[in-house]
């Protein structure tokens, strides 16, 4: 874990190919969505309009069950919205696509595949594994799992599994990385280390990131913008800009101020 960070910058920076596609532009226009439960429509998203510029890191913050994951599924193209449109680079999202990969809260590694095969899944699914085998090795060393390439998921710790899942996403060179509470289940130390790695990766590769988190501090430390949602049905309560250099310090006065503001928007200021 520790050795990764030092390893990460040098060889990768040298090998960093120029193919690096810049991030995708995401536009969410008047999107409403809901689910039919017991013959009634349960509204989940209420008229969401927001966007993410190419290469921007946007965090989504909101109470549990408000509809954040639902929105991410729409962006990933796994579900279609009942109303409104979602566009990536000006084109309506019509289905799942490896340029928009999701890292879910649970690592959901395929238990029947070794770590290496898991990471290679996207390339293999698109039939380009032969040409790009080295990319799998690169990305595994990037997340520090080279030694565990042949291991099956049940032999991994929670943090390692989550890193493997991140590797599986990154192999596809995504233009939009969709993260659904990717660090939610990790212990606090692993979590800090992975937060650092995530920002490094993002700055190095330049993809757009849309990350859901329930941790206000995490959102403020990582993202350039923090979009705060209301209770279900989710509406946008605020769009906070975090105009600070990386790496950020959690005791920076601006972070502390924004944190109070965000907690206030979530109705939790008294608890702090």
């Amino acid at each position: 874990m520790v050795s990764v960070s030092s390893e990460l910058e040098r060889p990768q920076a040298a090998a960093a190919p120029t193919r690096e596609a810049a991030g995708a532009a995401l536009r969410i226009q008047d999107v409403s969505h809901g689910f039919v439960l017991h013959n009634e429509l349960l509204p989940v998203l209420d008229d969401i309009t927001m966007c993410a510029e190419p290469g921007e890191f946007v965090a989504l913050l909101g109470p549990s069950g408000c509809g954040k994951s639902t929105l991410l599924r729409l962006v990933a193209g796994l579900d279609r919205p009942r109303q409104g449109r979602l566009l990536v680079d000006g084109e309506v999202i019509a289905g799942a696509d490896p340029s928009r990969v999701v890292v879910f809260q649970d690592p959901t590694l395929f238990p029947w595949l070794s770590v290496w095969r898991n990471a290679a899944f996207g390339l293999q699914a698109r039939g380009v594994l032969k040409q790009h085998r080295s990319r799998v090795d690169d990305v595994l060393s990037l997340v520090g799992l080279t030694e565990f390439a042949r291991v099956y998921p049940y032999q991994l710790s929670g943090g390692m599994a989550q890193r493997a899942s991140l590797a599986r996403a990154l192999v596809n060179d995504p233009r939009l990385l969709i993260l659904d509470e990717p660090l939610g289940k990790l212990d606090s130390l692993t979590r800090l280390a992975m937060q650092g790695e995530l920002t490094r990766l993002w700055r190095q590769r330049g993809f757009t990131v849309l990350m859901v988190t329930h941790d206000v501090e995490e959102a403020l430390l990582l993202a350039q913008r923090v979009v705060v949602f209301s209770d279900r049905p989710a509406r946008i309560r605020a769009d906070l800009y975090v105009d600070l250099e990386y790496p950020r310090r959690r005791d920076h006065p601006e972070i502390l101020r924004l944190r109070r503001e965000a907690l206030g928007l979530l109705g939790l200021e008294k608890n702090w």
Binding site: A96, V102, T108, F121, R126
Partner: peptide, 15 residues
Amino acid sequence: VQTAYYDVARTLGAN
């Protein structure tokens, strides 16, 4: 089979 596996596979480009 858990639908989560299908979701992951689909976002990774599986037909």
